[in-house]
Design a protein around this nucleic acid. Structure first.
Lengths: 139, 139
DNA sequence: TAGAGCGTAACACTATTTGTTACGCTATCG
DNA sequence: CGATAGCGTAACAAATAGTGTTACGCTCTA
């Protein structure tokens, strides 16, 4: 699976939102992330679909968390951004009927599935509240 | 880390080479992979640098394995193609001095490091000979 | 010495992500 | 009721990475 920086960036934003407690506009979030409001809306839309944030239009609108940081794990954010699969085994598809290719793909798939399980477990163990804690005590 | 299909494709080729036992030209390998000789040379060059294959120019030249399939693991091929790092934690770098960003990055890094260890272990356990075995018995 | 084959540079093509512009809709304030 | 702040979304530009292609040089062997 293509590893982009969205996960880290969204965690960053959500923790800030949780610590500040208020509502943030796409404009302000874009400044946090050195990007622009449209990109923010695109990405936050995924989080909204997954029920992590909600948005309100009109004056005084913006984005807010639907629940406290202690009830959001990294896995939640990951799922919202990329769906079920975190790691995608890079298989080959040059000769689908070739038994060698199939055997190689099968082994790779198994290996990546193991790694994905590990990653999933790690992600589930970390709440955004923890990250906020660390940030506050290290500042 | 960007996951392309090179690992799977090279495993595929190497196993074929091991099973056939001879020397293969870039031209023939390109046909196996539905691609062209230059791409093959580019990729095989990494494997040669890592000592998995060797190449000879001139008439009758081509690529050959430097050791039997039983002494090549998926990890060897992976290392040859992408270096030490298999998974690269996708961190953010928008405000390097922000403690929240740093805390988030640290947690992600730890999680990915765990997953990488798992993947590395899996890769090391699988030799290309095993893949050849599976292919031969399943064909 | 001709040809087969690798080595490599240069460039085009493709796909994906990200950035940007533009415009519409909605809610609030005065 | 109108102006403004804010999200929603489509459309397009830009950057990036991988892949494909061409071209030319070098080496070895028949």
């Amino acid at each position: 699976m293509r590893q982009d920086g969205r996960l880290a960036r969204m965690i960053h934003v959500l923790v800030h939102m949780g610590l500040l407690g208020g509502r943030e506009t796409s404009e302000r979030i874009a400044q946090m992330l050195n990007t622009n409001p449209v990109v923010v809306r695109r990405t936050m839309a995924s989080l909204r679909q997954y029920g992590i944030v909600e948005s309100e239009g009109g004056r005084g609108g913006g984005w807010s968390l639907t629940r406290p940081l202690s009830e959001i794990t990294i896995l939640d954010v990951q799922r919202a951004l990329q769906g079920e699969t975190i790691l995608d085994a890079p298989l080959s598809n040059d000769h689908p009927s070739c038994p060698v290719e199939r055997a190689a793909n099968a082994k790779l798939q198994r290996a990546f599935a193991s790694a994905e399980q590990t990653l999933e477990r790690e992600f589930q163990q970390v709440t955004l509240a923890e990250i906020g804690e660390i940030a506050m005590t290290s500042a």
